[in-house]
Every structure is written in C-alpha cells, then in structure tokens.
Design a protein around this nucleic acid. Structure first.
Lengths: 143, 143
DNA sequence: GCAACCTTCATGATATATCATACATCTATT
DNA sequence: AATAGATGTATGATATATCATGAAGGTTGC
C-alpha cells in the first residue's frame, strides 16, 4: 500500500503545506515564492554567506541558490556590490523592497504555521521535530 | 529562527530522504526516479485511472503526471493502447520491463524505509503518520 | 442532432532540483 | 612568483511542479 511508504506520507504533508502556504502568500498579493522567501531570510540574517553556505542552510543545491538569487536581484529584493577582497563574490544585501516583502510575509507565515499545527499539542510538536530530525540523520551518510 | 519554521523541518527531512532513496536506487544501477516509480506503482495497482486520478493518488498535478507517463512510455516501462469507448484516453499497462524495474526497486524501498526509521518505535512511527496526516488535513481547504 | 458544457490530455511558461561542468579567482606550496 | 589545487559562481541538460490554456472527444438538454 502506498500509504505505508514513508516517503509518500512525508511528501503528501509537505506538498499540501507548501500549496497552502503559497496560496496564502499569493492571496495577499505578495509576489514571492516560498523558496525565494527562505533564501531572502537567510541573507537578511547573514549577508556574508557563499551560495553553497546559503544552500546548506535552506537545504538547497548551490545551483538552485544561484538561480534564486538571480531572480531576487532581478526583482529588486536583493542588491549586490562587488567585494574588494574576493573577485568571485559579491556582497548581497536585502533591499528596502525585499525588507518590505519580508515584513509582509511574516504574519502570513506565522498564521500558516498556526493553522497547519492546529490540534497538535506542544509535545506533539516537539516530537514531530524530533522524529523529523531523526529521519534526517538516519538518511545522512556518515561524514 | 529558521529551524522553528515547520515548513523548514519537513522540507529538510523529506529532501534528505529523497536524496538518500534516489542515491540507493542509482547505486543499484536502476534507471528510474522516485517520482516515476510512484506513478508506475499506482498504474500497476490500478490501470484504469485518468491522469488526474493518478495525480490525486501520488499527490501530483495532472500536468506532472502527463509528463512522467510520457517518459515511462518512452523508456518502455509502460505500454498504451487506444480505448475503444473513449477516444481521449489510452489504456496504460506496466510492461515486462516496467515490472522488472518495480521488482528490482522493491527491496531497495523497504531497506530505505528501514534505515530512515531506525530508532523510531512502532508508536513513534504511528504517531508520525498521524501527525503528518493531521497537518495535511489542516492545510486542506474545506471542500 | 446540435449547442453548451465537461473531461481528458498535451503543452507553453516559469520556478525549482540535481548533476556536471566551465570559468574565474583565490590560496598554499615550493 | 609560478603553479597546483581549492573555492565561488554560472549555466546546460534533464526532471518535476504549477498554472494556464488549447484541442479533441464525450455528455446533456433541448
């Protein structure tokens, strides 16, 4: 039975949550995807990461991060300036427009989470995080 | 903190599991993606579904299913024949090659699940499914 | 039997994921 | 300082996700 497949249950929950969350952002008239939002948030919190480091934090490939950053630059949510000490990199900064969008998305994210977790106790929530982390570790090759 | 974001934890676990599972299939020299495998399995279990119905079961868009089916046909894992009573549809069947691949993937899937769930008790496992289902329902608009 | 509507499937556009690779630049070693 | 190796970024190819739409076929009501 497919429903016994762990992948299937996880995939089902995350996809529904993703659709729900994205729909609520869209409905608010905010032009950003969840993935772009994640990257933008990481850059806001730490603006001197490489693309690979950003990818580690948001669990994306460097190539995906590169393309998301390009979009965020094109749409004016990020600005870049050359770094004098390393010609390969640029200094990324969340622009005012980017900050405006982050501010607008924030309450929506909180509300999404609240609705998604309705009926789950604090202990359920903690256990869920713990189990997900355990699965993550189990699937992570020893390094 | 990003780690507080439900989406983030779910995304992290499912992505790592997906990479782990796909790597094990690749390592066995089997040329199929997890998503193709899911669709193939559903067709094996029920070969008279429309693309939309298949999509409902594997939690994919009809457009995604259409493209996955085209690939499965191109790679000889599925065969199609016209349905006399409805010119829009075709009868899909898992080919011998498709069955061979399903058989080869099966033990790998079981092993993936076993490893991913190491250290989780029966109750943990049941609770995980239950919590994921609850999140799914919470994110599903009343219909 | 025809018109209006619905279903099924295909496909274009855009975003993301993954792998591989190319290119530039930086660092370490000698 | 020159070179070898490591790092940072961009991009091509392929697969998938989502939305929108088009085209063909089916169904219903009249």
């Amino acid at each position: 039975m497919l429903s016994n497949v762990l992948f299937y249950s996880l995939d089902k929950a995350i996809k529904q949550y993703r659709r729900f969350a994205q729909a609520n952002i869209d409905r608010a008239g905010i032009a950003i995807t969840i993935d772009q939002w994640l990257v933008l948030r990481v850059i806001l919190e730490n603006d001197d990461l490489t693309q690979t480091e950003i990818g580690d934090r948001v669990f994306k490939d460097q190539a995906s991060v590169a393309r998301i950053i390009r979009l965020l630059l094109e749409r004016g949510m990020l600005v870049a300036e050359a770094l004098p000490h390393d010609g390969r990199r640029t200094q990324l900064r969340v622009s005012e427009e980017g900050q405006r969008i982050l501010d607008a998305v924030h309450p929506i994210v909180l509300n999404n989470r609240r609705i998604a977790l309705q009926g789950l106790s604090q202990e359920d929530n903690a256990l869920l995080h713990q189990l997900l982390e355990r699965i993550y570790l189990n699937c992570t090759p020893a390094s």
